[in-house]
Design a protein around this nucleic acid. Sequence first.
DNA 1: AGATTGACCGTGT
DNA 2: GACACGGCCAATC
Length: 106
Amino acid sequence: MRPHTSSFTSSVREVVAAIPKGKVATYGQVAALAGKPNASRAVGMVMSHNKDTKAVPCHRVVGSTGALTGYAYGDGTSTKKQMLEKEGVKFKGSRVDLATSQWMPK
DNA sequence: AGATTGACCGTGT
DNA sequence: GACACGGCCAATC
């Protein structure tokens, strides 16, 4: 894919790109799948500088409580929430209903 | 090369 | 449930 990018960044993008439509994953979850269970912050930074929004649906990555943290495109979290709802993700007020919409990788 | 920051998480109060 | 504190990781200044 991107032999020019760092290993961790590459792994994160790969994991995020693997999130199925209608599901979401938490930063900690993505970090763990990328190989660093505690690198949730680094994941956020990768997303922040992520230019491949088309290939990496960063809007499917939410906080551990389902809070729509971040997203620097569109109208911010507002647009993020709209897109997720549109894809079939259930919401609990202003947070994602992780009980039913959290991505559970095999 | 060193210090700071940032789209976080878990725990305690 | 909301606020405060500390700890982790990588990218940026």
